[in-house]
C-alpha cells in the first residue's frame, strides 16, 4: 500500500475536500470576536442606519418619519451647504498641496547626510502631533487675532495693523490653511523614509554620467518618489476633508465670520447635533462619502499618468 493511499484512507471518505472547504473557524471566531461585534454593531449597522436615516426626518425625540428624497432635494437649494462645499474645496485644494510641498522640500533638505537629522526631524514633526489639539487652535485664535502675535510681528517690521485675521471673512480660512500647512511633519517623515529607499547606486551612476544635482533630482529622486507622493496625497486629501476641530474652535463652533470657515464637517455637526436634524445630517454624511470617494477615485485615475512604479 502506498503512502498516498494510506493517507487517503486516513483522511476518510470525502475527507480532504470537506476539510479544505471548511477550515476550522472556531479559533478565528474567538480572535475576531471583538472585531466582529464592532464591525456589525458600530460599522455595518450604523452605515445601513445612516443610509435609512438619510430618507427620514428624525430629531431623537419623535419617531423617524420617512420623507423620501426630501433631504437630498433640500441639499440642492441649501445655501449654507453650497458655502460649506466652497470653503472645504478651497481648503483642501490649497492646504494639501501646500503641506505636501513643504514636507517634500524639507525632506529633501534633510536627506543628504546632514548632521543632526533626527533633531531636525523631531522639531519639524512636533507640530503635526499638536496641530489637531484644542490647545493649538486656542493659540491660533490669539496669534491671528486683532492684537495677536502676528500683528505684533508685523508691527516690528513697520506694518501697523489692527486687522483680526480670524475675524475677517477674507482671511479667516487662510489662517486655517496655514495651520494645516504647519503640520507638514508627518508627510515629511514619510517622504524621508521613501528617500532612503532610493539606492545609492542610482546617484552614483547619475554622477558618472555627468548629471548635476538638479538633473539627479529630476530624473532619479522624483520618479522614484512619486509612489510616496501619491500615497501622501491620498492620505492628506482624505484627512483634510474630515478636518473639524480647528475650524470649530477658531470660529467658536459657528463657521464665522460669515460662514467663511464653515467646513463641511462643521456644517454636518451643526445640522446633526446643533439642530438635531439627524436625517439631514445623515444625508450630508453620505454626500461627504461620495465626494471623498470621488476625489480619491480621481486621484487613483490620474496616478496612471504620473506615478512611476518600478517593475
Amino acid at each position: 500500500m502506498s503512502i498516498a493511499e494510506l493517507s487517503r484512507m486516513a483522511r476518510g471518505r470525502g475527507g480532504p475536500k470537506a476539510r479544505q472547504k471548511m477550515p476550522d473557524n472556531k479559533p478565528a471566531l474567538v480572535f475576531l470576536g471583538p472585531w466582529l461585534i464592532g464591525a456589525i454593531c458600530l460599522m455595518i449597522g450604523p452605515i445601513i442606519a445612516s443610509l435609512v436615516l438619510s430618507f427620514t426626518n428624525y430629531n431623537l425625540l419623535q419617531p423617524a418619519k420617512f420623507v423620501g428624497f426630501d433631504n437630498f432635494i433640500r441639499m440642492l437649494s441649501d445655501p449654507r451647504l453650497r458655502k460649506s462645499l466652497e470653503v472645504t474645496s478651497l481648503y483642501v485644494l490649497i492646504s494639501v498641496p501646500g503641506q505636501l510641498l513643504a514636507a517634500l522640500l524639507l525632506a529633501i533638505l534633510l536627506n543628504r547626510g546632514l548632521r543632526g537629522v533626527t533633531i531636525y526631524r523631531a522639531a519639524f514633526y512636533l507640530p503635526s502631533l499638536l496641530g489637531s489639539s484644542v490647545a493649538i487652535a486656542v493659540l491660533w485664535r490669539q496669534v491671528f487675532g486683532a492684537q495677536g502675535l502676528f500683528n505684533a510681528m508685523l508691527g516690528m517690521i513697520g506694518i501697523h495693523t489692527e486687522i483680526s485675521w480670524i475675524g475677517d471673512s477674507s482671511t479667516a480660512l487662510g489662517t486655517l490653511i496655514l495651520l494645516h500647512v504647519w503640520t507638514f511633519g508627518s508627510p515629511m517623515v514619510i517622504f524621508l523614509a521613501g528617500l532612503r529607499q532610493i539606492p545609492t547606486e542610482l546617484y552614483e551612476a547619475a554622477t558618472t554620467d555627468g548629471a548635476n544635482a538638479w538633473q539627479q533630482f529630476k530624473s532619479v529622486t522624483m520618479p522614484l518618489l512619486t509612489p510616496i507622493i501619491f500615497f501622501n496625497l491620498v492620505l492628506a486629501v482624505i484627512n483634510s476633508f474630515a478636518s473639524f476641530t480647528q475650524a470649530f474652535i477658531v470660529s467658536g463652533g459657528t463657521g464665522a465670520p460669515a460662514d467663511s470657515t464653515l467646513f463641511y464637517t462643521l456644517y454636518l455637526y451643526q445640522e446633526g447635533f446643533g439642530s438635531f436634524r439627524m436625517g439631514y445630517a445623515s444625508a450630508l454624511a453620505w454626500l461627504l462619502v461620495i465626494i471623498v470617494g470621488a476625489a480619491t477615485a480621481i486621484l487613483f485615475w490620474t496616478s496612471k499618468f504620473w506615478v512611476h512604479y518600478e517593475d
Binding site: C41, L42, M43, G45, I47, L53, F241, T265, A285
Partner: peptide, 20 residues
Amino acid sequence: FMLVTIMIPIHVVIVPQYIL
C-alpha cells in the same frame, strides 16, 4: 472590509452611533 473601514470618515457613522 477591515481595510475599507480605515477610509470611512467618522462622520458617516457618528449619527447612528450617537443614536445607539
